[in-house]
Design a binder for these strands. Structure first.
Lengths: 339, 339
DNA sequence: TCAATCCATGTCAACGATGTCAAGATCTTT
DNA sequence: AAAGATCTTGACATCGTTGACATGGATTGA
């Protein structure tokens, strides 16, 4: 292994000087700097993280703790966004997937402590409040896709109310008036927030909002949900006064609405406009016609989480943090059409 | 921070003894061990990884280098499988996503070196041969979903030939004889392997294989492919002598075949059986009827890769390694039915 | 010209763990 | 009971880096 010492010897300077050079300390003459850098490159010297870590009591690694976030395919984007942001600073991610196991989670917090991670992004699968106790870890933490119930930590969450607003607003603007809404489970926070968004859009458009048009596309509990969008959509589309458009709680729901429409001989978007949520591209881009949907901005949430982390002091003063809302933009494709 | 020293002082023993205890060194009396462990727990002592790393010149971290693997949703399972396997050993993953950028990749290899990772899993998005040169990294490497052209590294890949065999064999057994095949791009290795699997199944069933029934569902290049399964399937299903079953190169293709069938008024599985590949559950479980498919065993590949890594000596002798094939099992759902 | 200031570089110790070796205590063996 | 073997514990140096502080030379100002 090539060490600072070796480089120093070769360059005819002290180890400390080499250290200064590789750390961009300005207190080094240009000549020395160039000479040392030449040797550094020639010897392919790479600073030993372990020694740095030990000396500085911090590392260039950021922890990413997830519940089961990695399970749900699209949320990998949180990881990608975080990486993207870290790349610029020469840092990387140490990942810990708890799969929902609290014992394992505790172990991972210890592990983060042992590795002196410079911060942790804590991401959850569902957008939800969270009371995080971390007796084994002291450093800065940013919540992603979840937020602290008592606002004692910074957090980045999707703006589900605005996302719901986008969905409804777009369809209303296209002239739709009878709009069916297939929601996620009522217990999910996003469901409530989007509901508010729908109402706001309807109100702004001067259209009365009919709660009867709002039906859950799932049954069961959050932990054990069953997708029944196909049947619900068939009921909705089979009745008289069928809707001219359907807003879906996510893209999977939309996929089943496509199937329901096909089974009734209804064409999309000719007879029915369909709007998704999530922008799960494997579905949204593959469906015929492709799906107009609203994108869950996981990539941006990952980026922002790391940015926030980087800007945090090691020991944050006991401040109050309102969740940062990230817009869920409308992605226009082919499944919605003016009436 | 609580250090070995602090624990030692409290316990009235030397730091070295505490070290022995936390490392399960058998050369410690039961009394001492219990006494020390009590203090360790009471003080919530966690060994400092940096110091360990420095002293032992190795870390408990395994690197995961991916090209764009994290982009394709389902392959997150490689990460999950790897984690699962590491969990037992108290290790974790340091992840590096190159997004295909060689400069970045080089930087990440350096980073892995700096962090003294105990090994690296190198995973690719496509199953393909790979000539890996890592001047900046010496430790053990296992390839996942790719393999070394000259067999100089261990590798774990899906058994695509057998997967293709499963697809065809199942449909043949259900009595289908006219079977359409919508393949991936011919340039992709999986396409070739699965083709061999199809032929084998047909031969075993004593059914003649008609190459004309095999059509790519994609156009363009690997880097820039365009899914045209919808049109191809409509052509195939619109002709006389339409197939009674269609084998798809992946689940996205199957999704479009569903749409094509619906547009022609054909019902699945009544008029047409459809078989997917990948087992992308967001699609396969959401489709109505749910999709019979073949599962890409990414989770197992991740597990096996780490197992292989763990079993490797630090400096592997220049051996030859045949790729380890992992079966792609048939997942039976509702989209295939006897003729 | 001499003191004060600044700049570039160097010396030294320390971060926390563990490998090496040694020593004291205890147990065998004859 | 003495010599050896074994078992348990400890002293000490060391891994590679950087922070605190020191040094010596050049520059500035009066």
């Amino acid at each position: 292994m090539v060490t600072l010492r070796d480089v120093a010897r070769q360059a005819g300077v002290s180890p400390k000087t080499v250290s200064r050079v590789v750390n961009d300390d300005p207190a080094v003459s240009a000549n020395t700097r160039d000479a040392v850098m030449a040797i550094v490159r020639a010897m392919n010297y790479v600073p030993d993280e372990a020694a740095r870590m030990m000396r500085t009591a911090t590392s260039t690694v950021v922890g990413l703790m997830t519940d089961v976030v990695a399970t749900t395919p699209y949320s990998v984007d949180i990881v990608r966004g975080a990486q993207q942001e870290l790349k610029g600073e020469g840092k990387t991610l140490l990942i810990a997937n708890t799969e929902g196991d609290p014992v394992l989670e505790r172990e991972y917090w210890r592990m983060f402590r042992a590795h002196k991670v410079s911060g942790v992004v804590y991401a959850t699968m569902y957008h939800r409040p969270l009371d995080l106790r971390t007796p084994d870890f002291q450093g800065p933490i940013v919540l992603a896709n979840c937020y602290s119930g008592n606002a004692d930590r910074p957090s980045i969450v999707p703006d589900d109310e605005r996302g719901g607003y986008h969905q409804a607003q777009h369809l209303l603007q296209l002239g739709h008036r009878r709009i069916g809404i297939l929601t996620l489970l009522p217990a999910i926070r996003a469901t409530v927030l989007r509901g508010a968004g729908y109402r706001k859009a309807f109100a702004e458009a001067g259209v009365s909002y009919d709660p009867a048009m709002e039906v859950p596309a799932f049954q069961g509990s959050v932990a054990n949900e069953r997708l029944v969008a196909y049947d619900v959509a068939r009921d909705m589309l089979g009745g008289r006064e069928r809707p001219t458009a359907i807003i879906c709680g996510n893209d999977k729901v939309a996929l089943q609405v496509y199937a329901a429409a096909a089974s009734l001989g209804l064409s999309i978007p000719g007879d029915l406009s369909v709007m998704g949520y999530d922008d799960l591209t494997v579905i949204a881009e593959t469906l015929r016609p492709s799906l107009t949907t609203v994108r869950l901005p996981y990539y941006e949430i990952g980026e922002l989480a790391v940015q926030t982390l980087t800007g945090m002091p090691d020991r944050a003063p006991a401040a109050t943090f309102e969740p940062v809302l990230v817009d869920c933009p409308l992605i226009t494709r082919e499944s919605c059409r003016p009436i």
